[in-house]
């Protein structure tokens, strides 16, 4: 008798399963994004290609310290720092130190974002740009101009690692307009 009961239960389970698929057919929203026409909305912490940020006066923030290059696990960042005595108006950077050469090899980069976290001046940030296909590998090597251009194009949408620098978007991103502020590094007690 239990075999018959089992059979009936299993047959009903088929109906239940068909009900589930029917609900999906009738009601569930489609998750497909028609990519070239529609674009996915990236999370504000999405890690796309980098940008080298400028301050409000259009001066570079990078001081050429090469911390990003040191922390990079795939060693794809090359920085040559330099110093200048020029007056502030004539400087390319906000600071006396600046990056003479700044190159990221995006073909090697694994987009971990360690470089952004290492940056002491928040000069380096990431963008939502993920369309980085190239026919030639050499075109994947981005120099300083490319990265600054990324900043000009994506600054208002970039969030990863620089949420606190983008107060206009803070509420949209985090649901909370209160500036988070950069993580503080409390001094280690001796």
């Amino acid at each position: 008798m239990s075999a018959i009961g089992n059979a009936i239960r299993q047959s009903l389970a088929i109906l239940k399963g068909m009900g589930v698929t029917l609900r999906h057919i009738l009601r569930e929203p489609r998750v497909t994004i028609q990519y070239p026409e529609e674009r996915p909305k990236q999370s504000f912490r999405y890690r796309g290609i980098h940008q080298l940020r400028l301050d409000e006066n259009g001066k570079e923030l990078c001081v050429g310290c090469n911390l990003c290059g040191l922390v990079c696990p795939s060693e794809c960042i090359y920085v040559e720092g330099a110093e200048t005595d020029a007056p502030e108006e004539a400087r390319v950077s906000r600071y006396e130190r600046y990056a003479l050469v700044y190159v990221i090899n995006a073909a090697r980069c694994l987009y971990c974002g360690y470089c952004v976290e290492a940056c002491p001046t928040d000069a380096l940030a990431m963008t939502p740009q993920f369309e980085l296909g190239e026919y030639q590998k050499r075109n994947c090597i981005y120099d300083k101009e490319d990265l600054v251009r990324n900043h000009r194009r994506w600054a208002d949408q970039a969030g990863y690692g620089i949420e606190w620098c983008n107060p206009a978007k803070l509420e949209e991103w985090t649901g909370d307009a209160k500036p988070v502020g950069p993580p503080s590094h409390p001094a280690v007690e001796p």
Binding site: T21, H24, I25, P29, R30, V31, T32, Q34
Partner: peptide, 13 residues
């Protein structure tokens, strides 16, 4: 199309 409907996809379009 039916399979796509059941799997929350769009199917050939």
């Amino acid at each position: 199309k039916v399979m796509a409907d059941a799997q929350a996809r769009i199917g050939p379009n």
